[in-house]
Amino acid sequence: MDVFMKGLSKAKEGVVAAAEKTKQGVAEAAGKTKEGVLYVGSKTKEGVVHGVATVAEKTKEQVTNVGGAVVTGVTAVAQKTVEGAGSIAAATGFVKKDQLGKNEEGAPQEGILEDMPVDPDNEAYEMPSEEGYQDYEPEA
């Protein structure tokens, strides 16, 4: 019985440690998101679009440190934060509304985080759909 109880105690310690790591990862992701939003706020009209992409990228980098179902929630929060940063930029006159959601080359930025393969159960990952990809044929 002692062996059984000791095993359960060790398992509990492992769960607590994993929860603490997840909590730490979420806190880091939130900190990076805040950094990115402050970065966007300090940019001029020309830099705002690039700044919004930076927020998304920093958040995406930190999301990889967070495991399990938390990833889905962090990704949703990050996307809403990026959308909010863009709205703030438009409201303050840093950028025109028609410039939001495009990178410096004018290509749409939507789907940055949505296409990231995420499995809350950590069982399997699927690649994003290939609808947006084109076949590449090298020139002879």
Score class of each variant (00 low, 15 high):
Lys96Val: 13
Lys97Phe: 02
Asp115Trp: 06
Gln79Gly: 03
Lys34Arg: 02
Thr75Cys: 05
Val66Gln: 02
Asn122Ile: 10
Thr75Met: 09
Asn65Leu: 06
Asp135Val: 12
Ala11Phe: 03
Val118Pro: 14
Lys102His: 05
Glu131Pro: 14
Thr64Leu: 07
Lys21Gln: 03
Gln109Asp: 14
Glu131Met: 02
Pro117Thr: 12
Ala124Arg: 13
Gly106Leu: 09
Glu61Ser: 06
Phe94Trp: 15
Phe94Pro: 08
Ala11Met: 14
Val77Pro: 02
Lys23Gly: 01
Gly84Ala: 15
Gln79Ile: 08
Thr54Val: 14
Lys21Thr: 09
Ala78Thr: 09
Thr44Arg: 02
Ala85Cys: 06
Glu137Val: 05
Lys58Met: 09
Val66Met: 14
Lys96Phe: 14
Glu46Ser: 15
Thr92Arg: 07
Glu61His: 09
Val82Glu: 02
Val16Phe: 10
Met116Val: 01
Phe4Asp: 00
Lys60Trp: 06
Lys97Met: 05
Gln79Thr: 07
Ala85Gln: 02
Gln134Lys: 07
Asn122Cys: 03
Ala76Arg: 08
Ala78Cys: 08
Val77Lys: 05
Val55Trp: 09
Gly47Thr: 14
Gly93Phe: 07
Ala85Leu: 15
Lys60Val: 10
Gly86Asp: 05
Val71Gly: 02
Pro117Met: 11
Glu13Met: 06
Gly47Glu: 05
Gln99His: 05
Ala30Trp: 11
Val55His: 01
Ser87Tyr: 05
Lys21Met: 11
Glu137Arg: 15
Ala29Glu: 00
Gln24Lys: 14
Val15Lys: 00
Lys43Glu: 01
Asp119Trp: 02
Pro128Gly: 10
Thr92Lys: 02
Leu100Gly: 14
Glu139Gln: 05
Val3Ala: 02
Val71Met: 14
Glu105Pro: 03
Val95Ser: 06
Val26Thr: 01
Lys23Asn: 00
Glu20Lys: 02
Thr81Pro: 02
Ser129Ala: 04
Lys32Gly: 01
Gly67Arg: 14
Glu131Tyr: 13
Val118Ile: 07
Val16Thr: 08
Tyr136Ser: 13
Lys12Glu: 00
Gly36Glu: 04
Gly51Pro: 01
Thr33Tyr: 10
Ala19Met: 07
Asp119Pro: 15
Gln109Val: 15
Lys60Gln: 13
Tyr136Lys: 14
Ala90Glu: 03
Ala91Tyr: 06
Glu20Cys: 13
Glu114Lys: 05
Pro138Leu: 10
Pro138Gln: 05
Glu104Trp: 10
Thr72Phe: 04
Thr72Val: 11
Thr92Ala: 14
Met5Thr: 01
Gly84Pro: 02
Tyr125Trp: 04
Lys43Ile: 05
Lys96Ala: 14
Gly73Gln: 15
Gly14Ser: 14
Thr33Gln: 01
Glu126Gly: 08
Gly41Met: 13
Val48Gln: 00
Gly31Asp: 07
Ser129Thr: 12
Ala90His: 06
Ile88Met: 08
Glu126Ile: 08
Glu13Lys: 07
Thr44Lys: 01
Ala90Lys: 06
Ala124Phe: 13
Gly41Pro: 00
Tyr125Ile: 14
Leu100Phe: 15
Glu104Ser: 11
Ala19Lys: 02
Gly86Val: 15
Lys12Arg: 10
Asp98His: 15
Lys97Trp: 15
Glu35Gly: 04
Gly25Val: 04
Thr54Arg: 14
Val82Thr: 04
Lys60Tyr: 14
Ala107Ile: 10
Val63Ile: 13
Val118Met: 12
Thr44Asn: 01
Ala11Gly: 03
Glu131Ala: 14
Asn103Val: 13
Gly14Val: 12
Ser42Thr: 04
Glu131Cys: 09
Ala90Cys: 12
Lys45Asn: 02
Gly106Val: 06
Glu57Met: 07
Asp119Tyr: 01
Glu131Ile: 12
Ala89Leu: 08
Gly73Cys: 13
Glu126Asn: 12
Gln24Ile: 07
Thr54Tyr: 11
Thr75His: 08
Gly132Lys: 10
Val3Pro: 00
Gly101Arg: 10
Val26Trp: 14
Val118Gly: 15
Met127Ser: 04
Gly86Ile: 11
Ala124Cys: 08
Val40Gly: 01
Lys97Thr: 07
Lys10Asp: 02
Lys102Ala: 03
Gly51His: 15
Ala107Cys: 04
Gln134His: 03
Gly106Gln: 06
Gly14Lys: 05
Gln24Asp: 12
Gly14His: 14
Ala140Cys: 15
Ala89Glu: 05
Gly86Trp: 15
Gly111Met: 12
Gly84Asp: 04
Ala89Pro: 06
Lys23Asp: 00
Thr81Ala: 11
Gly68Cys: 07
Lys23Phe: 09
Thr75Lys: 08
Glu114Asn: 07
Val3Ser: 03
Glu35Arg: 09
Glu57Arg: 05
Thr64Asp: 07
Glu137Ile: 03
Val66Phe: 11
Glu110Asp: 06
Glu137Gln: 05
Leu113Asn: 01
Val16Cys: 09
Glu83Ala: 15
Ala53Arg: 15
Leu8Phe: 03
Val52Phe: 14
Glu83Ser: 04
Gly36Lys: 15
Ala89Gly: 10
Gly25Gln: 14
Gly68Arg: 10
Val15Phe: 11
Lys45Leu: 13
Leu38Gln: 10
Val63Lys: 01
Asp121Tyr: 08
Glu61Asn: 07
Thr75Trp: 10
Ile88Trp: 13
Gly106Lys: 06
Thr33Met: 15
Ala30Pro: 00
Lys45His: 01
Val15Gln: 00
Gly73Lys: 11
Val118Glu: 14
Val48Arg: 01
Lys102Cys: 13
Asp135Tyr: 08
Gly93Pro: 06
Val77Asn: 02
Gln79Glu: 03
Ala53Val: 09
Glu104His: 09
Glu130Trp: 08
Val95Trp: 12
Gln79His: 15
Glu13Gln: 04
Ala107Lys: 09
Gly93Trp: 13
Glu114Cys: 12
Ala78Phe: 13
Lys32Asp: 00
Val15Met: 11
Lys23Ala: 04
Glu123Lys: 08
Ala91Phe: 15
Gln99Ser: 13
Tyr39Lys: 11
Lys21Ala: 06
Ala19Arg: 02
Tyr125Arg: 09
Asp2Glu: 01
Asn65Glu: 10
Ala89Cys: 05
Glu46Thr: 15
Lys60Ile: 09
Gly84Val: 12
Val74Trp: 15
Val71Asn: 07
Ala76Asp: 03
Glu83Arg: 13
Glu130Thr: 10
Tyr125Ser: 08
Val70Ala: 04
Ala27Lys: 13
Gly41Arg: 07
Met116Lys: 01
Val48Pro: 01
Ala90Trp: 15
Leu113Pro: 11
Val48Trp: 13
Gly67Pro: 01
Pro120Asp: 06
Glu20Tyr: 13
Gly67Ile: 11
Glu20Pro: 00
Ile112Val: 15
